[in-house]
């Protein structure tokens, strides 16, 4: 009863929060999530551009709306994933091992935003290039070598992978 009343007051006036989060970084960081998101951005740009010059049906308009929305969602996801690794994982030792990380991350933030604003494929490719650079840095901090290979699915672009096992 008291909890319900307090909750109602909270919903109206907004009681401040205090954190009892687990506070334990899970320790699971992997740049693959941001790389896949960057590839998705390019794929959506390609699919959007495939509609160019076409007389669009209602179904095409619906598809275009979805493609634009997903492109922007995935560009934002790249930024979010990079921010987490940079903010939670990178500490003094990692910054020392990879000088220039702050500038690189800032460039990724700008490139991610640009991908939201445009349907220029070059913007997507630039985002992927920067994310790949970030992946190289990340794996370097783990003492893991990397290699570059073409991803086996559209948009079939170069991606940095860790040499594991």
């Amino acid at each position: 009863m008291i909890h319900q009343i307090t909750k109602a007051i909270d919903s109206v006036f907004g009681i401040k929060t205090v954190s009892a989060h687990c506070d334990v970084p899970c320790g699971i960081y992997d740049p693959s999530t941001m790389q896949v998101a960057a590839l998705s951005v390019i794929r959506f740009i390609d699919q959007i551009n495939e509609l160019d010059g076409k007389e669009l049906t209602l179904a095409d308009h619906a598809k275009l709306a979805r493609l634009v929305a997903e492109k922007e969602t995935h560009a934002a996801k790249v930024k979010e994933e990079v921010r987490i690794v940079w903010g939670d994982y990178f500490k003094a030792a990692q910054f020392e091992a990879c000088p220039g990380t702050n500038e690189l991350v800032h460039s990724i933030m700008l490139a991610g935003s640009k991908c939201k604003q445009t349907i220029d494929r070059a913007a997507g490719e630039e985002l992927l290039k920067l994310v790949n650079e970030f992946a190289v840095s990340f794996w370097k901090t783990k003492g893991v070598e990397t290699f570059t290979a073409t991803c086996p699915y559209p948009p079939a672009l170069d991606v940095v992978y860790p040499k594991l096992g």
């Binding site: 909890h3 401040k16 929060t17 205090v18 954190s19 009892a20 506070d23």
Partner: peptide, 22 residues
Amino acid sequence: LYIRRITGNSMYPTLRDGDYIW
């Protein structure tokens, strides 16, 4: 006086996410 809503479960089971404390 502080009235706060708990977020997270690091104080579980004493305090749970969504509880309030004074």
